[in-house]
């Protein structure tokens, strides 16, 4: 159907919201990043300081470590999610007794608030009375309780596990929607050619759901850095700065150290990184469509 103005009229309210709440603040953040702007001293002169905020960021050990921490957190989380989502979606796509129980169990972590997930897992990881140490010592795997949340590597492992638990369902659902687009005829003709299950998976299923996997990966990657809830509640970024991801550090610069100039510079760098990520994704998708 063709109408001249109707399509745009219907879109106006949404785009007004997006411009006012996302784009204008984005530009304002950019101007903050070139200012000396301390929220603790709002009446002070917010002078232009050029690239000073950016320079002090790149000289900061803590900033660099937050980037490395984010990479570990993202790669660990998304890698684990991908393996689990591929298995789970494959199961959920079969017809069997108990399928609705299975699907409901997938939705549960999605429905629970990240903060609640974080508290639940924090309780399970508790060194003295958490169920994880109780089970491990009950079956004789460990002699002494493991201090999960207070030693560097284990704390990272713990927050990654929690994030995988909470966010895998999102990826699983996107992969399921991919599986549902595949026609059964393809598998039947593969059966006639005598292909086994693995061959069918790698030669038919995986190539066809690849666009969905890519979409799911970019969603879960951004979700992982966007949702500071889990790290905030479970470790607060600690011990030391072992689990302080980029966005959590940015939050602290803004609202604990009240430095909107430095925080603005961090945010601008974050936006650039996210932009590059999305650009790669869009390029990959348009190549995929040409092929």
């Amino acid at each position: 159907m063709r109408y001249k103005y109707l399509p745009y009229v219907l879109l106006i309210p949404m785009f007004v919201m997006i411009i006012v709440i996302v784009f204008i603040p984005l530009l304002t953040t950019l101007t903050y990043s070139f200012q000396s702007y301390q929220l603790s001293d709002p009446n002070a002169d917010r002078g232009f300081v050029g690239l000073e905020n950016y320079i002090s960021l790149f000289q900061s050990e803590r900033f660099r470590s937050s980037i490395v921490t984010s990479l570990i957190y993202i790669l660990g989380s998304v890698g684990g999610m991908l393996i689990l989502a591929l298995i789970t979606s494959q199961l959920a796509n079969q017809s069997f007794k108990g399928r609705s129980l299975f699907r409901a169990s997938i939705l549960l972590p999605w429905a629970v608030a990240p903060v609640v997930a974080a508290q639940a897992w924090k309780f399970m990881y508790d060194a003295d009375f958490g169920i994880i140490n109780q089970v491990l010592s009950g079956i004789g795997l460990i002699e002494r309780n493991i201090p999960w949340l207070v030693s560097d590597n284990l704390a990272m492992l713990s927050v990654v596990t929690t994030n995988i638990w909470k966010t895998t369902p999102l990826l699983t659902l996107i992969v399921i929607s991919g599986l549902q687009t595949i026609s059964k005829d393809l598998y039947e003709s593969a059966d006639m050619d005598g292909s086994n299950a693995w061959q069918k998976y790698f030669h038919i299923t995986l190539p066809l759901i690849k666009p969905f996997i890519m979409l799911g990966l970019i969603f879960t990657t951004l979700q992982t850095i966007n949702v500071i809830d889990i790290v905030y509640v479970m470790t607060g970024g600690g011990p030391g700065e072992a689990t302080e991801i980029f966005t959590l550090y940015n939050y602290k610069v803004f609202f604990q150290y009240l430095d909107f100039g430095l925080g603005g510079a961090m945010a601008v760098i974050g936006v650039i990184v996210v932009g590059i990520l999305i650009a790669f994704y869009v390029r990959g998708m348009s190549k995929n469509m040409d092929a």
Binding site: I21, V22, I24, P25, L26, T28, T29, Y32, L222, I225, N226, I228, T247, N250, Y251, F254, F260, G263, G264, A267, V268, G270, V271, V274
Partner: peptide, 8 residues
């Protein structure tokens, strides 16, 4: 990510 636009 919301944190990038939250200060303004």
């Amino acid at each position: 990510p919301g944190i990038f636009i939250i200060s303004p």
